[in-house]
Design a protein around this nucleic acid. Structure first.
Length: 649
RNA sequence: GCCCACGUAACUCAGUAGGUAGAGUACUUCCUUGGUAAGGAAGAAGUCACCGGUUCGAAUCCGGUCGUGGGCUCCA
């Protein structure tokens, strides 16, 4: 039999007989130890099963169970095993849909008239364990589409048949393990025995093929790892994330509330939260002032006609609140700030000489969101955008985008967000404006990103209908992604509102408009910050920076003095004069995550000092009031500059 | 909006053969004046989300409404 040549990752070429399986080749090519950890191989860039037959020369890369690809294979296989367990327990009443691996686990969608219950989870898991103990091999078969359709028609799996009917290729692959057959591209584990650590975590509804007009299926979510420790660690991390939940912390730290009486998706900022928000807003305004922006304020409602002109009613009418009649004229709650900014633009003739105009506003907008989409501060019906609109000439576009990126990243870095993914979204199928403008604008966005030395991905066709955009997704301290910043070029509104400027040639031209939001929605951004910091805000942001704790009533007058003096010095301070022991007060301040506790006993009172306890339990040496005020002032200054010196986390 | 689950004092929760409610924390008062994560005692506090039905009787069963959670869909 002829030999074929395999190129290993280290560049070494080895020959094996043509027609052997990957598993056989591994025996000849790698150590036993490596072989036992290998769950698949990448042949010329394609992931394949160990049972695959080697037919020609190829690059050959064993995928060890440590590799990220291996985890995906494991989870995909786990989905199959879960489906087998479900079918075996619930029989023909269950139709299987699809079951892929996800970022942190896997799911499988089922169609079954009875809902699954959490009790079923245990039964299914127990069944899965049996299937794992059997170490049944996953075997791959290929067959013509027609044959597969026949197979799944016979076994009564209409969803599989529907999928098959849309497959353009001649052949498809199916996988069998035990009694279960699934349409699947693979690859899979050699056998079910690899599946040692898994858990079904939740149940949810999901539309067939993600279309809300389709049948609602039951989706069982699970997760799986190669070993139990990793699974435990993952479950532990879920617990940690729960502790950071901004809804829980928002309540505990008295930052905000959402109440039935007021309505869903509407935020009430309580004193502490309002102060936090004020600090954020002040910072935002200062930074914008320094970067040559001008501040605007605009109303919350406007005549319905304006929203007709802007196109919002046509494009987003379903997501706007119903109109209200005022003196027989129809008005509409604003879903966006831009038309108001344009109205200000139109207050007089504009010349190219005053360009670029950079107008910003913390503008509160209202959007009708479906009830099921609402989520704490993250998705609400009334929120404040840190909005800005820049009016400029085409040849100023690139520089403006560059400047926006600069300010944007600077502000994000202030909060320790220096890890992000950037996406450039290009022209979608439905769009307005001419192709030339689109190309010009897309290029300007690209050039600005490149000049700034930023890595980005192109999101083809994901631009808004009125222009291309850049989106920035930040990563928080526990690695979760949040999309906040967006920079969008708009060809639509200048046209619709017929705005113009006089150019160097004395003729009228249409300006280019850039929309941008850095934090996105303040509500959402604050929600992200709460989770990012787990409620323990750095000193410059903390609504309460220090709380005075006295030891006994004897120091009450001095506490009052300290309180007044530090408050006048600009420290955000509270006093706890309650008739309680120090331990009790410390515990309370600690749970409120206050950065500094100022302890005052007779000693401090005599010396006219305070003893400073940090959130991490450490103490600073006793200091005078001016010294402490200076300490806080320095923290404020550094925090605003993004130098994060956060005592005791 | 759709699927599933849930909705008991300010908070966290207990309360299944249907007989008009309980704990801890917080709150108020009193005692205690105590140096780095909960001192003690007493008290007040709930139309058991709302509306309707079944029943002699419903927090508990049924239906509807509102809200919350996990997803799906959507997100200018």
């Amino acid at each position: 039999m002829a030999d074929i040549s395999l190129t290993l990752p280290d560049g070494e070429c080895k020959t094996v007989a043509k027609g052997v399986t990957v598993a056989d080749a591994l025996k000849a090519l790698v150590s036993n130890k490596t072989r036992k950890k290998t769950v698949a191989v990448r042949l010329d860039g394609r992931l394949m099963d160990l049972s695959a037959v080697l037919e020609s020369d190829a690059s050959f890369e064993p995928i060890s169970s440590d590799a990220p690809e291996a985890l995906e294979i494991l989870r995909h296989s786990a989905a199959h095993v879960m489906a087998e367990a479900v079918v075996s327990l619930f029989g023909d009443e269950v139709k299987v849909a699809i079951g892929p691996a996800t970022a942190d686990g896997f799911y499988y969608d089922f169609d079954r008239s009875e809902p699954f219950t959490p009790d079923d989870f245990e039964r299914i898991e127990a069944k899965m364990k049996e299937l794992v103990a059997a170490a049944a091999p996953f075997s791959r078969e290929t067959m013509p589409v027609a044959a597969a359709i026949e197979l799944f028609t016979k076994s009564g799996q209409p969803y599989k048949v529907e999928l098959l009917k849309e497959i353009a290729e001649d052949e498809v692959s199916i996988y069998r393990q035990g009694a279960f057959v699934d349409l699947c591209r693979g690859p899979h584990l050699p056998h079910t025995g690899f599946l040692q650590a898994f858990k079904i975590v939740k149940l949810a509804g999901a539309y067939w093929r993600g279309n809300e007009n389709n049948q609602m299926l039951q989706r069982l979510y699970g997760t799986a790892f190669f070993d139990g420790k990793a699974l435990t660690a993952y479950l532990h991390q879920l617990e940690e994330a729960k502790k950071r939940d901004h809804r829980k912390l928002g309540k505990e730290l008295e930052l905000f509330s959402i109440q039935d009486q007021v309505g869903p998706g509407l935020i009430l900022w309580q004193p502490k939260g309002a102060l936090l928000r004020k600090i954020l807003e002040d910072h935002w305004r200062d930074e914008h002032y320094r970067n040559d922006y001008e501040l605007l304020f605009t109303p919350h409602i406007a005549r319905r006609d304006m929203w007709q002109t802007s196109g919002h009613l046509d494009f987003y009418g379903e997501n706007m609140f119903s109109p209200m009649d005022i003196d027989e004229v129809s008005y509409q709650l604003k879903p966006m700030n831009c038309p108001f900014h344009i109205a200000i633009y139109k207050t007089r003739m504009r010349s190219y000489r005053e360009f670029p105009l950079r107008w910003c506003e913390l503008g509160t907008v209202y959007r009708y969101e479906k009830t099921g989409a609402l989520h704490g501060l993250m998705r609400v019906r009334g929120f404040t955008q840190d909005d800005a609109h820049i009016f400029c000439k085409p040849d100023q576009l690139e520089k403006e985008i560059y400047n926006i990126l600069d300010l944007n990243l600077h502000i994000l870095q202030t909060f320790g967000f220096d890890n992000y993914d950037i996406y450039l979204s290009t022209r979608p199928e439905k769009y307005v404006g001419d192709d030339e403008h689109w190309e010009q604008a897309t290029n300007a966005l690209k050039l600005a990103l490149e000049k700034k030395g930023l890595k980005y991905e192109i999101d083809p066709g994901e631009g808004v209908f009125y222009g291309p955009k850049i989106d920035i997704k930040i990563k928080d301290v526990i690695g979760r992604s949040w999309q906040c910043s967006t920079i969008q070029v708009d060809f639509n509104l200048p046209e619709r509102f017929e705005i113009s400027y006089t150019g160097e040639d004395g003729n009228k031209h249409q300006p280019i408009m850039i929309h941008r939001a850095l934090m996105g929605s303040l509500e959402r951004f604050l929600g992200v910050l709460i989770e990012h910091y787990a409620g323990a805000f750095p000193v410059w942001l903390a609504p309460t920076q220090a709380r005075i704790l006295n030891i006994t009533d004897a120091q009450a007058d001095y506490v009052e003095e300290v309180y007044q003096e530090l408050r006048r010095a600009g420290v955000r301070i509270e006093k706890d004069l309650r008739n309680e022991k120090l331990n009790y007060k410390i515990r309370d301040a600690q749970m409120q995550k206050i950065p500094y506790m100022l302890i005052i006993g007779d000693k401090e009172m005599e010396e006219r000092q305070v003893t400073v306890r940090l959130r991490d339990g450490k103490n600073l040496p006793a200091m005078s009031l001016p010294e402490f005020a200076a300490l806080v002032a320095k923290e404020n200054e550094q925090g605003r500059r993004g130098v994060c010196n956060n005592p005791g986390k």
